[in-house]
Design a protein around this nucleic acid. Sequence first.
DNA 1: TTCTCTGGTGAACGAGCCGTGAACGTCGAT
DNA 2: ATCGACGTTCACGGCTCGTTCACCAGAGAA
Lengths: 215, 215
Amino acid sequence: MVREVVCAYLDREGYATIEAEDGETALDLVTSTSPDLIVLDVMLPKLDGYSLLERLRRDTDVPVILLTARAEEVDRVLGLELGADDYVVKPFSPRELVARIRSVLRRAQPTEQIATTLEYDQIVIDGASRQVVVRGQAVDMPPMEFDLLHQLAASPKRVFSRAELLEKVWGSSSDWQDPSTVTVHVRRLRQKIEADPDDPQLLVTVWGRGYRFEP
Amino acid sequence: MVREVVCAYLDREGYATIEAEDGETALDLVTSTSPDLIVLDVMLPKLDGYSLLERLRRDTDVPVILLTARAEEVDRVLGLELGADDYVVKPFSPRELVARIRSVLRRAQPTEQIATTLEYDQIVIDGASRQVVVRGQAVDMPPMEFDLLHQLAASPKRVFSRAELLEKVWGSSSDWQDPSTVTVHVRRLRQKIEADPDDPQLLVTVWGRGYRFEP
DNA sequence: TTCTCTGGTGAACGAGCCGTGAACGTCGAT
DNA sequence: ATCGACGTTCACGGCTCGTTCACCAGAGAA
């Protein structure tokens, strides 16, 4: 009942929703549809919310918002410890839930930013046209190289390990991938965007840790 | 008297408690039992709360919650500057104390890790870019040196023994490691961050004890 | 003072990381 | 079918960094 109300409201707000009436169904649906966010009632037939959350956290990072009737701190702490992203106490107003959802999505978003245009002194990276302009010169870039550059440049100065880049750029299927793939792509990027590829200023190696984009 | 009530309440909440009736006893008990959290009344025989807190902070990171009768801002600021994690004014309800305890424990729980940026007058240590800026000058740092510096600077004024640094920075496999490794890394750090490496101001040797970062 | 122990210094070695060049496979276009 | 662009893999070599060691300097104790 709560479920229908919530779904209706979220639909009206422009979110696409999928419902599951018990924990097991939910688990199946999550793996088959990989939603952007899960609103999870702890009182759930067949597989309760906490157990489901625990199972989910073993192999996904989907943001989860818990719904619980009990206002006690214990439940809140338990939920957050299991890896919930936020927590709403029943009874709640749909408005509040939507606010929480927005906030959680905003926090979780940063991975999905790949349409943004990034502008720095030496380089402009246009996410929409997927074009790069280096010191006034347009440069063509293959898909992988572009995505890699975009990922690095979207968080300037931040160090990314090869493993992290594999995960973020190459996607989920990158468990067995060879980290040296990243190395090679970085090299090719350098040859395209560095003034002197032998002395990189933009794509800096952080020894033992990974790479960093230096604007 | 307050002590018995608090302990009784905490016991009932499922926490294991140890009592000390004066500051000196407390200090002994802390080193011998290494508790997860300390609730500390500032009015204490033999060694008052503030002094005890100061002593504690020289060689531990135990979370500390201060109990004080005075509501004045001065006391609050003093306590927090000395490194208290939270602060409760008498009279207080046991429920409130428990809430604070939970909150502090939750914060302390997930080994607040190495993406934090530390800023001091002379030096800025950026965990994300793994860059150090010393008196306006950017300095790149090898992995181990950076981790060591970050560890020391994350708890300024606190003394770390070589063994402890080996454990915290070098990790689990550091049982047989040579403590002189730490010495050498400290030396190299000094050459990079000290104005005069022969007269260290930031990375101070505490003879017979270890090292301390002095902001 | 003298002795002992801790910490500082310089140098050297070896492991492992990264850059490099080249080759191979795949896929889509011609 | 052929070709070219792109992604991936791999071996090799250079070089950075971590570690160790012998030796020296300085603090503390007797």
